[in-house]
Lab assay of single mutants.
Amino acid sequence: NTKMVRFKKGDSVGLRLAGGNDVGIFVAGIQEGTSAEQEGLQEGDQILKVNTQDFRGLVREDAVLYLLEIPKGEMVTILAQSRADVYRDILACGR
Score class of each variant (00 low, 15 high):
27 V>K: 11
64 V>G: 06
29 G>L: 01
63 A>T: 03
79 L>Y: 14
37 E>D: 13
19 G>F: 05
37 E>K: 10
24 G>N: 00
73 G>F: 01
48 L>G: 00
36 A>G: 08
26 F>Y: 10
51 N>R: 01
73 G>I: 02
14 G>P: 11
92 A>V: 10
32 E>H: 12
37 E>V: 08
82 S>G: 08
40 G>W: 06
93 C>L: 12
92 A>H: 13
56 R>H: 08
36 A>K: 05
91 L>T: 13
75 M>G: 05
48 L>N: 00
3 K>R: 06
44 G>W: 03
90 I>D: 13
45 D>Y: 03
10 G>N: 09
25 I>L: 06
83 R>D: 06
26 F>E: 03
78 I>L: 04
54 D>L: 05
16 R>Q: 14
84 A>T: 13
56 R>K: 08
19 G>Y: 03
5 V>Y: 05
81 Q>H: 04
29 G>T: 06
65 L>D: 15
75 M>P: 07
81 Q>L: 08
82 S>W: 09
39 E>Q: 14
65 L>S: 15
41 L>I: 08
13 V>I: 14
95 R>D: 15
88 R>Y: 11
19 G>E: 09
67 L>R: 07
15 L>S: 02
74 E>L: 03
89 D>E: 13
40 G>F: 10
93 C>G: 15
55 F>T: 09
32 E>I: 00
86 V>S: 12
32 E>T: 12
2 T>Y: 15
88 R>S: 11
6 R>I: 09
49 K>R: 13
16 R>M: 10
11 D>E: 13
21 N>S: 15
16 R>C: 10
62 D>G: 04
76 V>W: 02
56 R>V: 08
79 L>K: 05
8 K>D: 04
70 I>S: 01
53 Q>F: 06
42 Q>A: 12
35 S>V: 12
70 I>G: 02
63 A>N: 09
20 G>D: 13
66 Y>F: 11
2 T>L: 14
38 Q>D: 12
46 Q>Y: 08
15 L>W: 07
1 N>I: 14
15 L>Y: 04
10 G>H: 04
38 Q>N: 12
11 D>A: 06
56 R>E: 10
71 P>L: 06
17 L>K: 00
18 A>L: 08
75 M>H: 07
14 G>E: 08
92 A>I: 09
6 R>H: 09
22 D>F: 03
91 L>V: 14
76 V>L: 06
66 Y>K: 08
94 G>E: 15
78 I>D: 06
71 P>N: 03
52 T>H: 13
92 A>D: 12
39 E>M: 14
77 T>N: 11
49 K>A: 12
85 D>L: 07
8 K>Y: 12
68 L>H: 15
46 Q>T: 07
4 M>K: 10
58 L>E: 06
28 A>W: 04
32 E>A: 12
12 S>E: 13
77 T>E: 13
23 V>C: 09
35 S>N: 14
20 G>T: 10
84 A>N: 14
88 R>A: 11
16 R>N: 12
32 E>L: 06
55 F>Y: 10
67 L>W: 04
32 E>Y: 00
59 V>I: 12
50 V>S: 01
44 G>I: 05
17 L>F: 07
38 Q>W: 10
59 V>D: 15
5 V>P: 03
56 R>L: 06
53 Q>K: 14
38 Q>G: 13
24 G>S: 02
73 G>W: 06
40 G>R: 01
81 Q>N: 06
84 A>Q: 15
69 E>L: 04
25 I>S: 03
67 L>H: 02
48 L>I: 11
22 D>I: 10
11 D>F: 00
66 Y>I: 06
90 I>F: 10
33 G>K: 07
53 Q>T: 08
51 N>T: 04
50 V>Q: 04
49 K>L: 03
79 L>H: 15
86 V>I: 11
47 I>V: 05
87 Y>S: 10
9 K>T: 00
57 G>C: 09
27 V>P: 00
8 K>N: 07
10 G>K: 10
9 K>R: 01
51 N>D: 04
27 V>H: 08
82 S>C: 06
38 Q>V: 14
34 T>Q: 08
30 I>D: 05
52 T>D: 15
63 A>P: 03
33 G>D: 05
15 L>V: 13
80 A>Y: 15
37 E>T: 07
25 I>V: 03
21 N>G: 15
66 Y>Q: 08
95 R>Q: 14
93 C>W: 11
62 D>I: 04
87 Y>P: 11
49 K>S: 12
51 N>E: 08
83 R>H: 09
25 I>G: 03
79 L>S: 06
51 N>I: 01
19 G>D: 04
